[in-house]
Design a binder for these strands. Structure first.
Lengths: 246, 246
DNA sequence: CGAGCCGTTGAGGGGATTCAAGCTCAGTGG
DNA sequence: CCACTGAGCTTGAATCCCCTCAACGGCTCG
């Protein structure tokens, strides 16, 4: 696992326009900002950086002293912890418009590893900038806390939904959640079997059996490469209903 | 399940002294406040109220529009959700000095039920007051966010630790956590078997078997009433070590 | 080609659930 | 005083789900 390489780091001037026209701006943290605030963003000495990282690259590490939070612009990021007993466990998956690493704002160390699931595009937001923006644009204050609350709350819900009930039901619920981050034509990111196991607290083989069964049932159609699949929303829905969930 | 009755609601004047001499003040939210800020607290039109509630009483309800956060002054409070599928599940247990219901500050509805485990003493902090204090004492801002982050983070850790591994290990870890809220002479709150099951995601009978075994091993000594027990820290420690945890 | 990773599938065993029967204890009322 | 009752706890027995161990096939890459 390597540190993410900065594949594309655009100069500040270009970045202003990138933000203004950003596809996730309304959804993202700075959606609350005025135009004036927006231009402030990029005259700062610590500018927002746009960075891309390939799949499986480490974005930040648990325990690192955080100097930035990140907004996910494109792709999926997973947040992992090591539980007591050394078991790795995926706490949450963050998609478009979501904020990760916000604990850095408190001057605390990151409480998870953040790893790219797919190739991702991120905006790196230095905490120094966040602190300044909080002073100058009070609207950001509330937006930030709200987003933060939602992030941690989502992590909790995620854990609760995905850790209870029989193994196959948990897999169904996971696919349901992944389906919400689906690309066009229902293409979803399909984790490796070991990752599914870590997400759902089960053995790797159990995850495999479950996926195989779903493939046979026509719910899932694996795409070449093994990391993505086409999801039949209707069949998933009826499978969920049959399982007595949702 | 009834709404909590306000058993003791002291007048504001008395309450000032209660805060100043509060046994959990350093640990609690307003530990960050100056003396001046402290007296501000009680001249407000919406004062902090001290309230007591007996065991099993509902402090606030999931989905209610929150008008206050609470600091736990004495006793234990559990935060519950209903997961998809209707299964009740205890998200976290809060003890002395901990803050619950902070999501009210964002104007959001409560995201859990809060129920007293033992008889509890609480401080009810109106959000209007919190908003005012945030403006007038910026130090509170950071303290609030830090505490909030810690609360949600604790909930996550709690879930992760208590939901993985064999049933008996989970029970051991639960007792370890409850032990940290122990009274003098190692007396802990012992949940009903059904509650243990909800906490740990197992069947009621499994919880019972585990507790019985611990009793035979001398780790636990049930006290009359069934809701409390004496915990042998040393034996628990070695049991945890033997289980390969901790 | 062989090595290694990932996924799949089978067989076996163990731990947890489920179903079910007693048990203790507090409260109630005859 | 004592049977009656119901709630909570315990314990047993049977079943089943899931984990572990294991073998095998496809794929990429040196």
């Amino acid at each position: 696992m390597l540190m993410p390489r900065v594949i594309a780091l655009r100069p500040a001037q270009v970045q202003i326009d990138a933000c203004r026209g950003c596809s996730v701006r309304e959804a993202a943290l700075f959606g609350a900002l005025s135009e004036a605030g927006l231009s402030l963003l990029h005259t700062d000495r610590m500018p927002i950086e746009a960075l891309d990282a390939p799949a499986d690259h480490l974005i930040y590490r648990l325990g690192d002293a955080g100097s930035a939070a990140f907004t996910v612009r494109e792709g999926l990021v997973r947040l992992e912890r090591i539980s007591e007993g050394g078991r790795r466990c995926i706490v949450r998956v963050a998609g478009r418009g979501e904020l990760i690493g916000a604990e850095a704002i408190l001057g605390e160390r990151y409480t998870q590893d953040a790893v790219a699931c797919t190739p991702v595009s991120l905006c790196r937001i230095p905490i120094a900038l966040l602190e300044r923006m909080q002073r100058e644009e009070p609207a950001l204050q509330l937006a930030l806390m709200r987003r933060w609350q939602r992030a941690l709350d989502a992590a909790l819900t995620w854990r609760i939904d995905l850790q209870t009930g029989p193994a196959h039901h948990r897999v169904l619920r996971l696919l349901d959640l992944l389906g919400r981050h689906a690309g066009p034509d229902q293409t979803i990111w399909l984790p490796r079997r070991e990752e599914i196991a870590d997400l759902l607290g089960m053995a790797l083989e159990t995850a495999s059996r479950s996926i195989s069964r779903l493939r046979r049932d026509g719910v899932l159609d694996l795409l070449p490469g093994g990391r993505s699949a086409r999801l039949d929303g209707v069949r998933l829905g009826s499978a969920l209903a049959a399982a007595g969930v949702a």
